[in-house]
Design a protein around this nucleic acid. Sequence first.
RNA 1: GGGGGCGUAGCUUAGUCCGGCUUAAAGCGUCAGAUUGUCGAUCUGAAGAUCGUGGGUCCGAAUCCCAUCGCCCUCGCCA
Length: 595
Amino acid sequence: MKRTHTCGQLTKNDIGKETTLCGWAHSRRDHGGLIFIDLRDRYGITQIVINLQGVGGEHCSPLHQIAESIRSEYVLAVRGKVEPRPAGTENKKITTGEIEVAVSELQIVNASKALPFEISEYVTISEDTRLENRFIDLRRPEIQQKLLLRHRVCKAARDFLDKKGFAEIETPVLTKSTPEGARDFLVPSRLSPGEFYALPQSPQLFKQILMISGFDKYFQIAKCFRDEDLRADRQPEFTQIDIEMSFTDEEEIFSVTEGMFKDIFKAGLGLDLKTPFPRLSYKEAVGRFGTDKPDMRFGMELADLTDDLKSAEFKIFKQAVEAGGIIKGLNASGCAGYSRPQIDNLTSFAAVYGAAGLAWFKVTKDGFDSPIAKFFNSDLQAVMRKKLSAKEGDLLLFVCGKPKIVNESLAQLRNLLGKELGLIKKNEFVFEWVTDFPLFKYNDEEKRWDCEHHPFTAPKEEDVSKLDKDPGSAGSRAYDLVVNGSEIASGSIRIHDPKLQKKIFEIIKMTEPEIEARFGFFIRALSYGAPPHGGIAPGLDRLIALMTDSESIRDVIAFPKTQKGACPLTGAPSDVPDKQLKELGIKKINEVPRH
RNA sequence: GGGGGCGUAGCUUAGUCCGGCUUAAAGCGUCAGAUUGUCGAUCUGAAGAUCGUGGGUCCGAAUCCCAUCGCCCUCGCCA
């Protein structure tokens, strides 16, 4: 039997039609002479009815026997007539709920063993079990909707970019290891024993070479690989919508990206995004929110009180400022009622991000209530109130110390409080561009400069002259797109001058032979007429997780890995036969016995 | 590498602090039977558990101790 309709398609407009449906037996409700089966496919559920009276059969009729033998998740093909449900028995929860199919022919296409877990919206199954049985888990409509949304987003991105003249070009998955950023996944080469390919962390160099080759506007929905520890929002392989263009500038890249996101949100969620997205500089973002990816769905901005409070009689603040630190605070509005344990929780939360402590002040009608209030005279208290727009009933929280720690811990506190205080609306997406990043950050451990973004990012033109004497003051032409506190895309205008590219490598303390060995091919490419170019790469997995309100990107990846990088379904990674290793010239290190 | 949480029938959990009325309990699912308007169907009955694994303490361990494995969150890491 060939299906004529899907299980989500038939409505009262189809009443009277003959139809053939194929799908899975979602549930069976057996009333003896009357059997209902919910037939499910990815489009929906249609109730089919096997009625003894209707077909003039008896309990032992073949049709009835087949219906009785059906179990959960059997694959069925049914032929029958679309009929209205008797008045009062309509199911308003499903789109096909006004009709049912009276079965005249019923075929079990394939049986199913009893399931390891129910496909039901009413039970939460542990992720472990779900991933081990992903073939069943992926039948859950909730997951199917997420993957189908992912498809619509990819298609919208492709269609948009195609319309704008971008060409999708594939780049290698087996490529050259260019460590410097994340750890590479390595693949041993059989034909060159002892040598390795690396899986790309991104198609960065290839897309730049495509620009050099004149492809002008490139994109690729590209798999990227990084061998680092996993998180809820980090998988060892992930997908980017990788974009690069020549003869371009920030403005053009922003507008292309904004147009693409407009189409993506329309196609994925039916939402109309307002463009252009607001912009703020790195400096402003860190100043106001403590982070370069602020969640701008709510306020609660940080205030810098370093100069105001360094004179207070409070030793901890004083010492922190003398050591080159800063003092910043935020106003947890309306939280003066927090108990000591609640505040202790906030303190230990901040401690996770390195904060040595949390100074707090409850604003009451009699002034500040805090164990350390006595160290802050009324003038200082007035300044604190003013800078944080505090009113009675508020709770003021301060962290002092190294700027990085103060900003990071307060930014995290702000996010936590934003959630806890219900300042965040559901289904709201607030976009912002963060621009004007510094080009370098200092690496204390290795006593050298590191690239803030990556070494192919162009410095601000006016800062090129600063590179020699004061690299730390140089700005970059990098930009991030942030949505609801998540970095959702990152990019830059690139370096197209081979001499400048070499200089950047030198600043990050790469030696001439290292540069040659790792990036020689790329510098050579830049030397043959490289056009100015730049691009951006939205992370698809995080974007879909955000759009589907998923806790983890594992929910928007069909076959994700666990925290140890394992695939519970296939059992990867796994041992391989010695023969395979031998061919690759690889020897196992004998396990050293313990004791 | 560090911190935290979890692991008990196929699934979801209770029991674990404070060892013994536990013959390890329940709901869902499964299996058998009944059932003509259900849609998380219902009713009757049944089967189903190395309490993650290994070791130890004890008269006695799901429960206490040690080790180990797995999963999740997180710091570091992720140009």
